[in-house]
Design a protein around this nucleic acid. Sequence first.
DNA 1: CTGCTGACTGGTA
DNA 2: GTACCAGCCAGCA
Length: 106
Amino acid sequence: MASSFRARVLAVVRRIPSGRVATYGDVAEAAGFPRAARAVGTVMRDCGDPGVPCHRVIAAGGALGGFGQWPQLKRERLRAEGVTVHGQRVKDFRTIRWPRSHRSTV
DNA sequence: CTGCTGACTGGTA
DNA sequence: GTACCAGCCAGCA
């Protein structure tokens, strides 16, 4: 099984704990495709699975990314999980980031 | 098989 | 800070 790239991505997104976020690149890497950030977005776009917290997947740098009304929907959803969102950017993005949780100045 | 598209990323201007 | 370009990968016509 596993042949499906999307199934792999969905599995990773499902593992994202609440109160944390991951970028498309992080999800791609965790799925085994460190360069398929774009392809991950394609999978998210088609994601209609309630078991997949696609709202926890954001763009790099802490930007919500997404498209259309996704950003505003994410903002409410993430906030409900304990994530503080600043306009179009996540606060302390590096601290709540998953699976790395970076916190260095560089 | 070929070409275009897209919920992306990083670098340069 | 914003704007544009080139590179990357999977899915679809």
